[in-house]
């Protein structure tokens, strides 16, 4: 489906005045040239059939290294994963048998996987909401350009630059029974300190907090970019119309931040769905099974139980889940944007 904007461009002759959509006319000229060039050239498929004797062939050649790397490092592992998901390979033996859908049935009927799925879901919702709310709050606080704010932005983004495994180890120390958080708790006379990573009820929220601490830096950067792209005149107009701070946030800022939110939410959701490094560094799924996630189960089944086929089936299901959720979120955000 073509967008209304594209149709508008097509109908209009190329002019130097600003367009009604606010887009630069230069972009319009560029698009037109590309379109004209495409019309006059041979159809790409026919061009390839003819030995590629047209302008498309160098492009295809230029894409070859990228396609090669993609095939080796993305496509092949993905296909191999799907293949092993239907086998009983233990990850070691040189022979294996096809077992049909047995691994998939086993994954879906396992009680432990249900626990891992619930934990993953809780973590995903917690991380996506927490990171974006916190990221937005920080972005709003630090959106004014000043040296002090630059430093604060950098500091807030710093955890995002840390490898998750390192973040996990740092927080293991912070959460430990004789760690700094425990000491602060005692100092503030807050009673007995929570068990944090050692308690089955508090371990998952503690891990979610670590992930939020890391991901909110990304969210802040994305939302800050979105905030700075909002025309100040819109706020000014709203202010003249008598809108207060909260009304301007609700009716001006948030709707215009939707594209930034779409990217940020998808990113934080995928982080939650694939939560692994922080869990391994802090609890390795424990205490008991309190922090098992789909990713830790995949790892354990494949590399600790030598149950590779099973792990790969899990991987395929996780891939479908991540793709489905990401696509659904983008669709929801795009639809709302189109309506707006």
């Amino acid at each position: 489906m073509r967008s209304p904007t594209a149709r508008q461009d097509e109908a209009k002759p190329v002019r130097v005045e600003p367009t009604s959509t606010g887009r630069s006319p230069v972009v319009g000229i560029g698009l037109r040239r590309v379109r004209d060039a495409a019309r006059t050239s041979v159809h790409p498929r026919r061009a390839l059939r003819n030995g590629g004797a047209t302008a498309q062939r160098p492009g295809f050649r230029l894409a070859l290294p990228g396609l090669g790397l993609y095939s080796v490092f993305v496509a092949y592992p993905a296909v191999a994963t799907a293949y092993y998901a239907f086998t009983n390979w233990n990850g070691l033996a040189q022979h294996w048998h096809f077992v049909g859908l047995k691994n998939f049935v086993s994954v879906l009927s396992s009680g432990l996987e249900r626990t891992a799925f619930t934990n993953t879901l809780e973590a995903t919702v917690g991380i996506a909401l927490g990171a974006n709310i916190l990221g937005l709050a920080i972005a709003l606080l630090l959106q004014k350009r000043s040296r002090f704010n630059y430093v604060l932005r950098l500091l807030w983004f710093l955890p995002a630059a840390l490898p998750s495994i390192v973040a996990g180890y740092i927080w293991t120390f912070i959460y430990s029974p004789s760690g700094p958080l425990d000491k602060v708790w005692v100092l503030l006379h807050l009673g007995a300190a929570p068990g944090f990573l050692g308690s089955p009820n508090e371990a998952l929220p503690s891990i979610i907090a670590i992930a939020i601490w890391q991901v909110s830096g990304y969210a802040m950067v994305l939302l800050l970019a979105g905030l700075q792209a909002i025309d100040e005149q819109l706020h000014e107009a709203a202010r003249v119309d008598g809108a207060g701070v909260l009304q301007r946030l609700r009716f001006v800022t948030l709707p215009l931040l939707r594209p930034a939110f779409a990217v940020s939410f998808v990113f934080s959701t995928v982080t939650g769905l694939l939560l692994f490094d922080v869990v391994v560094a802090t609890t390795n799924g424990g205490p008991g099974y309190a922090t098992e996630t789909l990713a830790t189960q995949l790892y354990k089944q494949s590399f600790e139980y030598n149950n590779f086929g099973w792990g790969m089936a899990m991987g395929v299901l996780m891939g479908i889940l991540v793709l489905g959720v990401s696509a659904a979120m983008l669709w929801i955000f795009n639809r709302k944007e189109a309506r707006a």
Binding site: S176, P177, G195, F196, L197, G198, P287
Partner: peptide, 12 residues
Amino acid sequence: FEPNSTATTDTE
């Protein structure tokens, strides 16, 4: 056992 033993490392 010590309180919160599942959060205590072997080194501690």
